[in-house]
């Protein structure tokens, strides 16, 4: 175990050059964006003098290398700068918005897996049958509908027409007070506080956006499950297991699925990252205060600190994500040594 800890530490050390690269590149890229934040934030009727004043306040009148040094110095001290468009420190914005996005994305993926994996297994056991076709049609339909369309459609049916969904206004209806912050995940925080009423409120708000995203992410997971199940089911050890008279269930789930999960987990990692990005449209439709809409708004306004903070947070998140996926490999398949990965 201590060896594993050492290896994890080594992996984290390897991430340092990546982070340094990300910090440098985002700094340069944000400066290359069109638009002048000083003009943008000086307001509608600002004249030359007040724009210059804003520029000085923001430190944008200094030469670029000096701005970079100031930025890095602040980062080292744990100061990610202030976002101009929200008026808050970037770190506090991210710490409020990242959990909102993660809660939604993780729940959507969970929902998606719960549907897509059985669907994929079902399709693989009888390839070419009506079940296989059903699976194909369902996932193709899901992935070909843009998320904002699915989102608006779900709102129209379940909120506007049937009135069974709550108003699509963010993470909590205004009837509830947000839970005391522990993790930033409302479901977890309300459960910790034992406030089941607000838990219910938060869960209700999650249903439609999570369903929207789940529909969109069904396809890659189901297709990958089907393909890798087909491969496993036609392999020698499954034939041996069947010949040995093991129960169908045991063969299917115990041997085939377990081996088939490896590529599925890899796909999940990718789906997670693109789902977090594709969130933007879902967030806009459901007024979800997530990280995607934050990043887009910041980009539109040339809000340097916010864009840099977002990219950096994402880089950190993916370093962590890759580590988790590598660890999961070892859990699923003991043959995969951690050193080799």
């Amino acid at each position: 175990m201590s060896q594993r800890a050492r290896i994890i530490a080594a992996r984290l050390l390897q991430a340092i050059p990546v982070i340094i690269g990300v910090v440098t590149i985002t700094f340069v890229l944000t400066r290359a964006l069109p638009g002048d934040p000083a003009v943008y934030f000086a307001g509608d009727a600002a004249d030359e003098a007040s724009i210059q004043q804003v520029r000085e306040t923001l430190g944008l009148d200094k030469p670029l290398p000096q701005q970079f040094l100031i930025y890095v110095g602040d980062l080292v001290r744990g100061d990610w700068g202030d976002s101009l468009s929200t008026g808050q420190p970037v770190l506090s914005d991210l710490s409020r918005r990242l959990p909102a996005s993660l809660e939604l994305t993780l729940l959507a993926l969970l929902l998606s897996c719960a549907i897509a994996i059985p669907l994929g297994v079902m399709a693989a056991t009888k390839p070419g049958s009506w079940r296989d076709h059903l699976c194909r049609v369902a996932v193709t339909a899901g992935v070909s509908l843009p998320t904002f369309f699915t989102g608006i459609l779900l709102i129209y049916i379940f909120y506007y027409l049937l009135d069974i969904a709550p108003s699509p206004l963010g993470r909590l209806d205004f009837l509830y007070i947000e839970p005391e912050r522990v993790t930033g995940f409302y479901l977890i925080d309300t459960a910790l506080a034992g406030d089941w009423e607000t838990f219910g409120g938060a869960a209700k708000q999650l249903v439609l956006p999570a369903a929207t995203m789940a529909i969109f992410t069904l396809a890659p997971i189901a297709r990958m499950t089907r393909a890798s199940m087909l491969q496993e089911l036609s392999s020698d050890f499954i034939r041996t297991a069947r010949a040995a008279g093991l129960k169908r269930r045991k063969v299917l789930l115990g041997y085939a699925l377990r081996n088939a999960l490896l590529p599925v987990v890899t796909t999940l990692g990718m789906v997670f990252s693109f789902a977090l990005g594709a969130n933007v449209l879902v967030e806009k439709v459901f007024a979800w205060p997530g990280i995607g809409s934050y990043a887009v708004d910041a980009l539109v306004a040339s809000d340097y600190a916010a864009v840099q903070g977002f990219v950096l947070a994402m880089a950190l998140l993916f370093v962590a994500l890759n580590l988790i996926i590598d660890l999961l490999y070892a859990v699923i398949d003991p043959r995969i040594g951690f050193e080799g990965g």
Binding site: I152, I155, Y159, Y160, P168, L169, K284, V285, A287
Partner: peptide
Amino acid sequence: REVPSAATRRAV
């Protein structure tokens, strides 16, 4: 309440 999507604002 801040609701970026005009379609959602209209539904509400």
